[in-house]
C-alpha cells in the first residue's frame, strides 16, 4: 500500500509536521484557557486550589486509560475493551481479596498480572491471527463485561476494603494532594518517556504510519503491537484498583463507557485515529479540556447533557480545524486525507 517514495516524502516533511503539531497543541491550550476564563465567571468556586485537585482526582482513572490508549492508537490500532476490562479486573481484585482471603496488596499484584494476561488475549488475536483490532476488542468488550457479570451474577458488590487500601483512592497526602495523583504522574511520565524518548516507543509511530515499512526497517512489528495491547490491559487493571479504592466497591458495571471517553480524549489531543501521528502530551491536554468542561458546567449549574453535546461539537470542530490547517500547508495535502479504516489493521 505504501511505497518507499511516499515514505521518504513523509520523512522530508517531518520538521514541518512537528511545527504543525506544536500549533495543534497550542490550539488545545487556547481552548483550555478560554474554558477557564469562561468558567471563572460562570462557575462558583471554579478557580480554587481545591477544585484544581478535585479535577485532577476525577481524571485519574480515565487518564490512565487514555494515556495508554495513545500508543495503541499510534500503532494504528484501537482498544475498545478497556472499560470492560476495568470492570472485570475490579471483580477479580474484589474476589481475590474477599473470597480467596488474599492480602489486598498481593491481590492487587495478581490483578495487575491478570490485566496484562487479558490484554495478551487481545494481543494474540490481533498479531497471531492478524485480525482487525476494532473487531477483536469489540468482541472482548462484550466478553470481559459478560464475564464480570457472570462471575457476580451481576448483583454481587464487594465492599468493606481496609482503610489502608482505600487511602489510595480517597486519601489526601499532606491533607491536600489526592493520593492517586502521584500514581498518575508517574504513569504519565513513564508513558511519555516510552513514546517520545526511546527507539522502542518511536517504533509505534512507524508501525502506525506503515506496518510494512516498519517491517522492512527491521522493527518486530508483531511484538511491538502485542506489547501495547498487553500494556493496555495492565493499565486497565491499574485503573481498576484506583477505581475500587476511590469508590470503595467492586461491581460488574464499573467503568462502563470509559473506552469512548478515553478515545475521545486521545483524538481530541491530536492523535490521528489512523495511527502514526500523535503525542502523549496532546492526550493530557485533551483530557484536561474534557475534564475542565465537565466540571465547569456542573459548577455553572448547567446540565450534563450540554457537556456531552459540547464535547461532541468540540471534537468535530477541532478535527475540522486540523483538516483545514492541513489543506493550507500545501505540501502535506494528500498524504493522509484518504486514509482508511483498514489501516487500523497493523499488518496487511
Amino acid at each position: 500500500m505504501t511505497n518507499p517514495i511516499a515514505n521518504s516524502a513523509t520523512f522530508k516533511t517531518t520538521p514541518k509536521w512537528k511545527k504543525a503539531f506544536f500549533s495543534f497543541e497550542a490550539l488545545l491550550v487556547v481552548v483550555l484557557v478560554v474554558e477557564i476564563i469562561i468558567f471563572n465567571s460562570t462557575g462558583t468556586n471554579f478557580t480554587t486550589r481545591d477544585n484544581l485537585f478535585e479535577i485532577l482526582r476525577f481524571s485519574v482513572v480515565l487518564g490512565l486509560l487514555a494515556l495508554v490508549m495513545t500508543p495503541v492508537i499510534l500503532t494504528g490500532g484501537i482498544d475498545l475493551s478497556v472499560g470492560s476490562l476495568l470492570g472485570l479486573s475490579a471483580i477479580v481484585f474484589g474476589k481475590l481479596w474477599r473470597d480467596a482471603g488474599m492480602d489486598p496488596w498481593l491481590a492487587a499484584i495478581c490483578t495487575l498480572v491478570f490485566g496484562a494476561v487479558a490484554g495478551g488475549l487481545n494481543a494474540v488475536l490481533i498479531t497471531r491471527l492478524r485480525l482487525p483490532p476494532l473487531i477483536v476488542t469489540l468482541g472482548s468488550f462484550s466478553l470481559f463485561r459478560g464475564l464480570a457479570e457472570a462471575l457476580t451474577r451481576g448483583v454481587d458488590n464487594v465492599t468493606g476494603f481496609p482503610e489502608s487500601f482505600l487511602f489510595l483512592g480517597q486519601g489526601y497526602l499532606f491533607g491536600v494532594i489526592p493520593a492517586q495523583l502521584p500514581i498518575f504522574i508517574l504513569v504519565a511520565v513513564g508513558v511519555w518517556l516510552l513514546v517520545h524518548q526511546t527507539t522502542f516507543g518511536r517504533s509505534f509511530r512507524a508501525i502506525g504510519f506503515s506496518p510494512e515499512g516498519a517491517r522492512y526497517a527491521g522493527i518486530p512489528v508483531e511484538r511491538r503491537v502485542a506489547f501495547v495491547y498487553i500494556l493496555s490491559g495492565f493499565m486497565a487493571a491499574l485503573a481498576a484498583l484506583v477505581y475500587v479504592a476511590h469508590y470503595g466497591q467492586a461491581k460488574a458495571d464499573a467503568g462502563s463507557g470509559y473506552e469512548l471517553l478515553a478515545i475521545t480524549a486521545v483524538v481530541l489531543g491530536g492523535t490521528s485515529i489512523f495511527g502514526g501521528i500523535g503525542s502523549v502530551h496532546g492526550t493530557l491536554l485533551g483530557l484536561a479540556v474534557l475534564a475542565v468542561l465537565r466540571r465547569g458546567l456542573t459548577l455553572s449549574d448547567q446540565p450534563a447533557e450540554l457537556g456531552s453535546i459540547l464535547t461532541g461539537g468540540l471534537l468535530l470542530a477541532v478535527l475540522a480545524g486540523e483538516v483545514l490547517l492541513k489543506k493550507f500547508s500545501s505540501r502535506r495535502a494528500r498524504v493522509k486525507t484518504n486514509a482508511q479504516v483498514s489501516q487500523i489493521t497493523p499488518t496487511t
Binding site: T44, F58, Y247
Partner: peptide, 16 residues
C-alpha cells in the same frame, strides 16, 4: 450507566 457518576456530581457540588 457509570455508577461512579453520582460521586463525581456530589463532589462537584461540595466544591461549588
Amino acid at each position: 450507566s457509570d455508577p461512579a457518576k453520582q460521586n463525581e456530581i456530589v463532589e462537584t457540588w461540595i466544591t461549588r
